[in-house]
């Protein structure tokens, strides 16, 4: 799956501040089958989310999105539900690293949560660091993702990137 990182477009699901890895990937379900685990993603914030989110939708949130533990399942669950990107006022450090590591676009865009309404169409240009909300004629500057991490995203995450590195090893 290749995504045009300059033109991600989707419907916004709006969340508040301090959305934690426990809300994204509740600890009590970690040993349950994946299908079951996905039903509980963000249920403590918006119970309808996991059932109604559509592939290509975008999660928009307030500050400190993804705070808490280092579990990679937190961004992975969003990716598995088809979420195309996370755009938040700010991102917790380990979450933002893990998101990119598993190939989920996660970008910090200060004040985004104050201008987006739930259901708005949001356009994200990861390459130039820009977020647009066409219906509101709003265009915001977002944090740029540095090149080595963009390269990971272009490959769809570290695992696919390693596959191409492995191919280079064979060619040597």
């Amino acid at each position: 799956m290749t995504v045009d990182l300059a033109a991600i477009r989707g419907r916004a699901w709006l969340f508040g501040s301090d959305i934690s890895t426990d809300m994204l990937s509740p600890g009590q379900y970690v040993h349950h089958p994946m299908e079951e685990r996905l039903k509980h993603v963000l249920e403590s914030a918006r119970p309808e989310f996991a059932g109604e989110v559509k592939p290509g939708d975008i999660v928009v949130a307030g500050p400190n999105f993804g705070c808490g533990s280092s579990r990679e399942s937190a961004p992975q669950h969003l990716k598995d539900l088809g979420v195309a990107a996370v755009v938040a006022d700010s991102l917790a450090r380990i979450f933002s690293r893990n998101a990119i590591a598993i190939g989920l676009v996660a970008i910090a865009c200060p004040t985004i949560s104050e201008v987006v309404e739930d259901g708005d169409v949001v356009e994200v240009d990861v390459i130039s660091g820009r977020v647009n909300i066409p219906a509101r004629s709003v265009s915001l500057e977002a944090d740029r993702i540095p090149e080595p991490m963009l390269d990971v995203l272009r490959h769809g995450g570290i695992e696919p990137l390693l596959i191409s590195i492995a191919a280079e090893q064979r060619d040597e």
Partner: peptide
């Protein structure tokens, strides 16, 4: 510092990692 398992896999394969 501590890192996740995907980042460790990358570091083992390439010897490098990105840091802020």
């Amino acid at each position: 510092s501590g890192i996740g398992s995907s980042e460790m896999a990358y570091t083992l394969a390439t010897g490098q990692l990105w840091f802020k």
